[in-house]
């Protein structure tokens, strides 16, 4: 049952990406293209999508965190880091540079696999390769630091 509910969560998330058009690269690139602010073609879809998403999550998390634990797990797994460090900003900058080239961040990159096509498969493969590299590098650095 918990696994099926996680499938439904992914399904709903992906459906939201499609409804909002946020799984479509021109929509993202139209938001990033600030030069279009002057010429009138700027696309605020990402802003509206994030307002809807963050608004619902902000309220919903408060209701959920009022409980002691999740329904099917021992505890809430939340990030413990609180400091802004160079690694956070470097990673975010590299991620953003790639995002602005293709217009696909990880959630849409996985979702568009469902539409099929060579481009979607190529992009998702490169994405997973980059993740594997970073995860492996991070593990080695952590092992050396001990």
């Amino acid at each position: 049952m918990p696994v099926f509910i996680q499938f439904l969560c992914g399904l709903l998330f992906g459906a939201g990406l499609i409804v909002s058009d946020l799984a479509n690269p021109p929509t993202l690139l139209g938001f990033f293209d600030i030069a279009a602010l002057a010429t009138g073609g700027w696309d605020p879809t990402l802003l509206f999508g994030l307002i809807g998403a963050v608004g619902v999550t902000f309220v919903g998390y408060r209701i959920v965190f009022a409980r002691h634990r999740p329904i099917y797990a021992e505890r809430f797994e939340l990030p413990s880091a609180t400091k802004i460090d160079a690694r956070l900003l470097t990673g975010a900058a590299l991620f953003g540079l790639g995002w602005g080239i293709a217009g696909l961040c990880p959630s849409p990159a996985v979702t568009v696999l469902g539409f099929g096509g060579m481009k979607a498969i190529t992009y998702a493969t490169a994405l997973l390769g980059g993740m594997f590299l970073a995860r492996t590098l991070a593990t080695h650095l952590a092992a050396r630091a001990v």
Partner: peptide, 17 residues
């Protein structure tokens, strides 16, 4: 669509933490 994304995120926290 954004609200659906938010609802999915809230559900994943509520059920799986």
């Amino acid at each position: 669509g954004g609200a659906m994304i938010g609802l999915a995120s809230v559900m994943l926290m509520a059920f799986a933490g």
